[in-house]
């Protein structure tokens, strides 16, 4: 699968990280690890500018974390019609891995609090698209 099936609206087709979407389709959220220095990157990064190395391996990203910040969008950009309100957020998932995603619409807006525990989960979107979201832990 190509990267054009990632997220609600993908702006990228070609990337060395396209396998990320295949993993997502299997319910797995992957990070990359530089085989030279061992740095783990999320979002995945297929090259390591410190080592000048492109030999990276896929490793499962941590899925248990906490909410760092968020905003509930009520006025959505073109391309996201009918989607608002939705809540975008950044969570911290151990070892300094920070993830940008949305908080599941199953979580009431009034229950969203910075510091709350989150679970990172792969999801399938209508139209054969794949993404991940934060769910209540």
């Amino acid at each position: 699968m190509g990267f054009e099936t990632f997220g609600r609206v993908s702006f990228t087709a070609d990337t060395k990280a396209a396998a990320f979407v295949d993993y997502l389709a299997q319910g797995k959220i992957m990070a990359t690890k530089c085989k030279c220095c061992g740095t783990v990157n999320f979002p995945p990064k297929m090259d390591c500018p410190s080592c000048l190395n492109s030999d990276v391996e896929w490793v499962e990203a941590p899925t248990s974390g906490k909410l760092l910040t968020f905003s509930t969008v009520r006025y959505e950009p073109t391309g996201f019609e009918g989607d608002a309100p939705y809540t975008i957020a950044v969570g911290e998932f151990g070892d300094g891995v920070r993830v940008f995603s949305r908080i599941s619409k199953d979580v009431n807006e009034s229950d969203i609090k910075i510091g709350m525990q989150l679970k990172l989960a792969a999801i399938t979107l209508p139209g054969g698209r794949f993404s991940y979201e934060f769910q209540k832990a």
């Binding site: 990267f3 990632f6 997220g7 609600r8 609206v9 993908s10 702006f11 990228t12 990337t15 990280a17 979002p43 910040t69 968020f70 905003s71 969008v73 006025y75 959505e76 950009p77 391309g79 996201f80 989607d83 608002a84 939705y86 975008i88 957020a89 950044v90 940008f100 995603s101 949305r102 910075i114 993404s131």
Partner: peptide, 19 residues
């Protein structure tokens, strides 16, 4: 690649700082 697909915008980014 990794953030625009979630529907971020400039106001939403700064709103995250505000929160």
């Amino acid at each position: 690649m990794w953030e625009s697909p979630f529907g971020i915008s400039m106001p939403a980014g700064y709103a995250m700082c505000a929160q």
